[in-house]
Design a protein around this nucleic acid. Structure first.
Lengths: 182, 182
DNA sequence: ACCTGAACACCGTTCAAGT
DNA sequence: ACCTGAACACCGTTCAAGT
């Protein structure tokens, strides 16, 4: 008679993310997660591998969210993509630094990147410049969001204004690349 | 007869930084540092407070370096400042993420910021725009260096080229701000 | 003043055992 | 198949004691 599973990977990651939000990354513990689920810490190992696997799962969770509607104009799509990242950083400031430490090659990360590629193409950025511009944008957005999570800005207003300033700047850059291509 | 100090804060931070470089942040241990210094882990507490204090000391260490020669033209000074940060990230990729997690208000960080302020003024950026532009530059540089430390770029060549691309872009932005002010 | 040793309350993880 | 309990080799930190 196979024992019925008491926990799932999903539940474990939910609980771990919530626990990390409350007590920080340093306080995130296999034992703590097990306790909250009413299960021995060793029960988690079958579902997430080990603690490293748990952390990788959290990184996934951070990025899996809505993607911008592909029907929107490119500028708006890029804006939304940035907003999604910043929202994740504000929602899980304790966990967010993991994103920078371990580079994410999850499906969510890859399809976000493809979305930016597509937006840049629509904007008219020459094909051979697209990957570089995407790296520039995503590096900035990631760094900005991480800085925000780390409390580097004095207020959310200041962060909003700074981000809008950067968007304006990058918008101009994209237009100048587009113009040069014609 | 007061016991003579067997270790100093400097030695402790040196050893801790080296140990973290070798075994990563997770492997950095009060006991490990003590062992390397031939001293009980508890001997460290008098000099660095606690483990948090040790980590804070490492963040200091990361930033305390040479500042760009103030006699150089502003563009070159900004370039050097970026290069210094990236060099720190490449030298201590394991430790670098700490910089983003805990915002650094060390003397070194503050005088780097003042240096950038000064460079922007020399470039002709209007005074009321200086802090915002500095935040933009430092956020980008920090995020870029952290991404580099995290292995987000395929090669050092790619990173160099991307950074140069960004510098060009920011240079244009600074010039347009300067022109608008005249 | 500074270091030591023992002790406490934790960790992640293994492994054999249960159902 | 999945969970449990005991055990191992670690942690950071306290506290009284030594010099």
């Amino acid at each position: 008679m196979p024992a019925r599973a008491k926990v799932t990977r999903e539940e474990i990651l939910d609980t771990a993310l919530r626990l990390a939000d409350e007590v920080g990354l340093a306080g995130l513990t296999m034992r703590g997660v097990g306790d909250r689920l009413g299960v021995t810490p060793m029960a988690l190992y079958r579902h997430v591998g080990d603690k490293q696997g748990l952390l990788d799962g959290l990184v996934e969770r951070l990025l899996t969210g809505e993607l911008p509607d592909p029907g929107l104009p490119w500028r708006e799509r890029l804006h939304r993509q940035g907003a999604i990242l910043r929202a994740a950083a504000r929602r899980h400031p304790q966990v967010f630094p993991l994103l920078l430490a371990r580079r994410a090659a999850t499906d969510a990360a890859l399809s976000a990147r493809d979305g930016v590629y597509q937006a840049l193409r629509e904007a008219g950025v020459p094909e051979d410049q697209v990957p570089r511009v995407e790296r520039l944008l995503s590096t900035f957005a990631l760094g900005f969001a991480a800085s925000e999570a780390g409390g580097r800005f004095r207020s959310e207003q200041e962060a909003d204004a700074d981000f809008a300033f950067a968007e304006e700047l990058f918008g101009q850059m994209i237009e100048s690349l587009t113009a040069a291509a014609e």
